[in-house]
Computed example of a mutant assay.
Amino acid sequence: MNKHFRVAGRLALKLEELGVSVPAVLRRAGLPHDLFQQTRILVSTDGLFALWRAIGEATNDPAIGLKLGTEDRMERFHPSGIAALSTENFGAAVRHMARYKQLTVPEEMLSTIEDGEWSIRFRWLMAVDAEPPVLIEYCFAWLKTIAHRGTGQVITPLRIELMQPRDHVKLLERHFSCPVITGASQNTIVFREQDAHSPFVTRNSELLEMLAPQFDEELKLASQQNSFTELVRGAIQQRLTGNRPTIENIARDLHMSTRTLQRRLQETGSSFQRVLEEARHQMARYYLGNSVLELNEAAYLLGYEDANSFVRAFRSWEGMPPGQWRETRRGNMVQ
């Protein structure tokens, strides 16, 4: 898994067009002053979040994320966006973008269909703090841009669900033409199931055929370069949804025997129990950065039998109980 995000240089151009000082943003974010002059603009998850928090803080415009995520000029689209528009429908475009993220960044684009609703959300795999509101609004606005450009029509979501409160809910509702709910368990944009089948007038099978082999080859190469422990950790985190995964579960998911899994972990100087604890630790920091989750809910999601077991484990990782750690993080974010 790639541990860095590549920031598009044209982000600086659009910020300037919107009257946002790029130097001020970079100073606030604690990023290099020449970041956008670099050939490859790479930042960690912390750096990405700092950048988007700084964008929100550097302007009084509550719609800044929406404006940055709305684009009508095709020449400014990233190649992956152009490839997404070349697919047959909105659902295929989302699948393509999700695959590209899997290839290039420590982020997932997750979509589910249930009871006639199509839900899409973003998950930053190496995040500790909650994702900046401006970033979430940008991501959802970009999805709306792809849907509009691809179909040539206005695709209206059923609703937007946001974890954090907003002072500009009415503005968001006007932009997306749907209800916006805050205090939700996750940040999600919800469409109708049939919206996934909305055909794209921009479909270009010839262009997609030219681009797809390159993306597939890069994905194959990236997969080969992943360390084995990261692969195991990712498989564990996929199963950390209320149950403690066993080594047999993970071996089966990775299509190998339990003995082979143990041997390959030993060759890296690790063990299944160590990787399991690393996965739990990483996810615990992510969950506790989400103020919506109670401690017992986080304990459940991480596969602990009770909250006390979770508290003991967390104290061994961080040197303090989870409640105190959460309050410390909140205090740091306020300062």
Rank of each mutant, 00 (worst) to 15 (best):
L231T: 15
F140R: 02
I55L: 05
R326S: 10
S44L: 06
S205L: 06
L171T: 09
A83P: 00
A63E: 13
H33S: 15
D46K: 07
L219V: 07
M210F: 06
L143N: 04
L68G: 05
M109S: 11
L26T: 01
A93H: 01
E206A: 12
W124T: 04
T202D: 04
E16N: 13
H148C: 10
D253C: 07
E206Q: 07
Q262M: 06
Y300R: 14
L85C: 11
A8V: 12
K3A: 15
L301K: 10
L265M: 12
E209S: 14
D167L: 08
R326W: 03
G183D: 09
I155R: 05
S86C: 14
T246W: 03
Q324R: 13
V190L: 05
Q324A: 13
F77H: 08
F228Y: 14
Y300E: 11
A141Q: 02
T268F: 01
A8H: 08
E217F: 14
R239F: 05
A8S: 12
I189Q: 07
N296Y: 11
A63N: 06
I41H: 07
F122S: 10
A29R: 00
N308D: 13
K3S: 15
A29E: 03
G9P: 07
G269E: 08
G152A: 01
W325Y: 15
A54F: 04
N290K: 14
A212L: 13
D253S: 13
P133Y: 04
L158K: 14
A54H: 02
V105P: 00
D72K: 06
E131A: 15
M126L: 15
T112Q: 15
D34K: 01
A29H: 02
N226P: 01
M109T: 10
A58G: 03
S177N: 12
K101C: 12
L13I: 06
L18R: 02
C178F: 03
G289Y: 06
S223M: 10
M163C: 13
V105K: 03
E294L: 13
V20K: 03
F176K: 01
V232M: 07
P213Y: 03
Q194R: 09
N243T: 09
D61Y: 01
P106L: 01
P32Q: 05
E206L: 12
M320W: 06
H197I: 08
V7D: 10
V180G: 05
V128D: 13
F176N: 03
E75M: 05
E294I: 04
G116Q: 03
